[in-house]
């Protein structure tokens, strides 16, 4: 069995309205039938644009959200062994509490150790993530964004978890600081044998940290493959479009023609058939009615008309 098995998980958020008795007037299909597994010791990257459901998926895996349907099986105690690193280094630490007590939270809530032993453990954790243990009594406001993210990482490691779900752990940080935190996460993985689910919208960071990468679009995984395979030979047109639109700091790169028109549709009423069809340059009649399944071996994609390896995605003839 894998360390984590997610099978056909769906998470819908009701949209309510009304003064006294709230009626459900619609549903956000945030995660809509996601299956994946994560092996011990690997890093699974999850990429996608806003509204694709990647953060919701993270919160389902860590138990913050109850799933609407489907199952999440974890080989261990989920509350202890699955921990999360949050995106916002400013929002994820309580501004009115001292760093030491924030990092000790998991220990206190799980009734682990004595106050003295917890204090020692917190100091060890702070040293482990590159913080000065002497700063135990400081408040979050006295730390920079990168240091706060280290505090968040120390908190996530307090209970010696096996799986750490990182939800956009570096996207709020400056480039030079991003690299520090990414290196720290990599080193901790090697030293502690951690497994990561690494969620981000920055494709180059995900490529660097991940063994395998899943691409999400409107609540579904459209493609999942070993990292290099996905970046070099994308099969789903959306993956190809995302890669071509990525920000690359290379002045000699030919500016790619924009291959995708329009925005991501609303997850409240996702398109029928393949959810990507309204924007897809390769869409045909079949895509509008029949939803493609995520199929393949190792490299899976959900598309009726996938790209051949090496094929470049052509933009659709102008239809604006």
């Amino acid at each position: 069995m894998s360390l984590l098995d997610v099978s056909d998980v769906r998470k819908y958020f009701p949209i309510k309205s009304g003064v006294f008795f709230q009626r459900e007037v619609g549903r956000v299909h945030a995660v809509d039938g996601v299956s994946l597994s994560v092996e011990a010791g690997e890093t699974l990257g999850v990429v996608g644009e806003s509204g694709c459901g990647k953060s919701t998926l993270a919160r389902c895996i860590t138990g913050l959200y109850d799933v609407t349907s489907g199952t999440i099986a974890f080989d261990g105690d989920m509350r202890r062994d699955v921990q999360m690193v949050f995106q916002d280094p400013y929002g994820s630490l309580n501004p009115r509490r001292r760093i030491g007590s924030i990092i000790a939270d998991p220990l206190v809530i799980h009734r682990e150790g004595t106050p003295a032993s917890r204090r020692d453990r917190v100091r060890d954790l702070m040293a482990l993530v590159g913080l000065n243990p002497e700063h135990y009594n400081r408040f979050p406001a006295e730390f920079s964004g990168g240091q706060r993210q280290r505090v968040g990482i120390a908190r996530a490691l307090a209970l010696n978890p096996r799986l750490v779900v990182c939800d956009e752990p570096v996207s709020a940080l400056d480039v030079s600081i991003q690299a520090q935190v990414v290196n720290l996460l990599k080193d901790l993985q090697t030293d502690l044998g951690l497994t990561y689910v690494f969620i981000a919208h920055d494709l180059s960071v995900v490529r660097y940290v991940s063994d395998r990468v899943a691409v999400m679009y409107l609540g579904k995984i459209v493609e999942i493959a070993p990292g290099e395979e996905l970046y070099e030979r994308p099969r789903h047109p959306y993956t190809a479009a995302l890669l071509s639109a990525a920000s690359v700091a290379d002045p000699d790169r030919q500016r790619e023609r924009v291959v995708l028109r329009g925005d991501v549709p609303s997850p409240i009423s996702p398109p029928a058939g393949c959810r990507f069809h309204p924007r897809c340059p390769k869409a045909q009649e079949r895509c509008t009615v029949e939803e493609p399944l995520l199929l393949g071996d190792g490299h899976k994609w959900a598309c009726h008309f996938p790209l051949e390896p090496g094929e470049r995605l052509q933009s659709r003839p102008v239809d604006e």
């Binding site: 030079s176 690299a179 290196n183 660097y208 700091a249």
Partner: peptide, 21 residues
């Protein structure tokens, strides 16, 4: 130079700028 170096380039270990602004 530090800024350009700290961008991920394939699988090479990242080279951050130490310290903070």
């Amino acid at each position: 130079r530090g800024l350009l170096n700290s961008l991920p380039q394939g699988k090479e270990r990242l080279k951050p700028i130490e310290g903070r602004p």
